[in-house]
Amino acid sequence: HDFGDGKGEIRGAYGSHFIRLKTPGHRGIGIHGTHDPASIGTRATEGCVRLNNSDLLELVKKYVYVGMPVVILTSEADSAVPCRFPAAVKAGPRLMAQTE
């Protein structure tokens, strides 16, 4: 992946797997590992969920299957960070109907 930081394409940027999420209106959002473990816990993604590579591997081996529903909830830590979409934060999470 090329993060557009002038360093060019980084091999293994997503770890061993990229679990693509069906996100209406967006492409390329998923759950993946990282080439930079120090970035875990920071807001360094382009909308994805990053895991330590060992945690990602365990998730893939034990739990993930094609078509499984994924629910991502906000945490108390997320509430402390200013959001570009304050109306969405006030409204809280919504469940979306799965169409496929």
Rank of each mutant, 00 (worst) to 15 (best):
Y63E: 10
P69N: 09
S16N: 14
G4H: 07
L51G: 03
C48F: 04
G67R: 03
V66F: 11
D78C: 04
S16D: 13
E46Q: 13
G6F: 15
A91N: 08
I10N: 08
G47Y: 05
H17C: 05
L57H: 08
C48W: 01
A97V: 11
T45P: 02
N53Q: 10
L59T: 03
F18K: 08
R20Y: 02
E76F: 00
C48T: 07
T23Q: 02
R27M: 09
G15R: 05
T34I: 01
A13W: 01
I19F: 05
G92E: 07
R94Q: 14
D78N: 11
P24C: 09
A13D: 13
K90M: 15
V70H: 06
G41S: 09
I72C: 11
Y65S: 15
I19V: 14
I29T: 04
A13R: 05
S16R: 15
L95I: 14
L57A: 12
V71R: 13
G25I: 10
V66S: 06
L56W: 02
R20V: 08
I72E: 07
K22E: 13
G41C: 10
I19R: 04
R27I: 10
L21I: 08
I72F: 02
C83K: 01
L59F: 06
I29A: 02
A38F: 00
S79A: 12
G41Q: 06
L57C: 05
R11L: 11
V49E: 03
I10F: 00
K61P: 01
D78W: 14
G25W: 09
D5C: 07
R11H: 10
I10G: 12
H1P: 14
E9C: 02
T34G: 14
G92T: 10
V60M: 06
S16P: 00
R94P: 00
P37T: 06
S54R: 12
H35Y: 03
A77F: 02
L51H: 01
R43H: 15
P82C: 05
F3Y: 03
M96H: 12
C83A: 01
M96F: 07
A87S: 13
K7F: 13
I10L: 06
E9A: 14
M68Q: 12
Q98C: 07
F18Y: 11
A44C: 05
A77P: 01
R11M: 08
A87Q: 11
S16T: 14
R94A: 12
V70F: 10
L73H: 14
